[in-house]
Design a protein around this nucleic acid. Structure first.
Lengths: 208, 208
DNA sequence: TAGATTGTTAATCGATTAACAATC
DNA sequence: TAGATTGTTAATCGATTAACAATC
């Protein structure tokens, strides 16, 4: 795909560029210079040009960047032109919040099933009509379905236990909401959202 | 409080140190060297010593660090020795997931009220017995209560609209789950959790 | 005391910003 | 063409790692 060796910092900024370009499109703006964008996003124009150039020249001297085109290109870089099959492990409030969020679906992130250990939950159907399966059928399920992304919305212990099953089952990425690090082989990607760490960072900043 | 000028990168690592030290305590380990901790956490021992020393010498030459003491000190640095009053704006699934999570309560983050625009929701009581108020009573509420942290679990537009009310109402920190940046004066801290950006980062990494 | 390990300074590495020539 | 703005190289800044003297 695109060039290797893109730094973590740049990757983390791409979705924000994508979001701002989407907003510009909504406003009907279809041309922008790095300096104007830098003003809006509160970053340096230099950084914007530097970042975008890692992926090739999307701009045009004397003109700037074409908004829809750049939006589209960044979308492709992020892999948003593709579709992803997902499962959610856990059927609690957080799991439901994630699977109920329509924005992901719109972008091609399709949740195909949920799993829970609790018999009160499985058998049932969550709000978007997604079936909830018993957790012990996960291994079986992964033999019959190709799943790109698994969302972990379960406690830390369970998350560590389930991870090898996911890896073995051919999952390519794990979106981890459990408060733990996970060990995976390098062909599998873990993206963690540690809510409690985020809250602690807020608490730190409030006090300093 | 502690020294100023601690870099963002260090602050972001503190909660992870805190978590690992907690795990060590659970295992009954009460002494650890930077090199042993570095092995477990997958960071360099040098970085650990460098980081910890920004806040003062918590270790002892030839011995290492006392686990419960270090855990406690990092807790204090993060402000976890204090208690925080919180409100949650929004009463949807995500808002409920956050307010229903017991771990925060345990650490002194007390949710005192929730607010929602939807008449079907307010008046009611969410799962932990937290009252849901009409959103238009927020301003009034903030005159009568001192709130440290507001959680924004509402759409981006609403989040931008509500922010000045929170700022005016004396909130010190905003934990923002809306997909937008927020403008606040510098005495107010915003900590954002952009779930869709996190998912895009995962999607990028899966493809490269 | 000898061994271990921190605290801290110095060296390296990487990321951000500045500057400007290329070019639309 | 003249003006604007990118693409890209060079300079700066900051963060990480290495090294080692201090000291428990």
């Amino acid at each position: 795909m695109e060039k290797k060796g893109i730094s973590r910092a740049v990757i983390n900024r791409l979705p924000r560029y994508y979001r701002y370009l989407g907003l510009l499109m909504d406003q009907g703006i279809d041309r922008i210079s790095s300096s104007e964008l830098s003003r809006r996003m509160n970053v340096t124009a230099s950084q914007i040009r530097q970042d975008l150039n890692l992926f090739g020249g999307f701009g045009q001297q004397g003109y700037g960047y074409n908004v829809p085109h750049l939006h589209d290109e960044i979308g492709k870089i992020l892999g948003l032109d593709k579709s992803y099959s997902m499962i959610v492990i856990g059927a609690g409030k957080l799991a439901q919040a994630i699977s109920g969020y329509f924005g992901f679906e719109k972008r091609g992130f399709r949740i195909e099933a949920m799993f829970d250990r609790d018999p009160d939950k499985y058998g049932g159907v969550s709000l978007r009509g997604i079936q909830i399966h018993p957790l012990d059928q996960l291994e079986e399920y992964l033999k019959e379905h190709t799943i790109d992304i698994a969302v972990l919305a379960i406690p830390a212990d369970s998350a560590r236990m389930i991870t090898p099953v996911l890896v073995e089952g051919g999952v390519r990425g794990i979106w981890n909401f459990a408060h733990t690090d996970l060990d995976v082989p390098e062909n599998v990607t873990v993206q963690s959202v540690h809510l409690s760490e985020s809250l602690m960072q807020l608490s730190y900043k409030i006090n300093h």
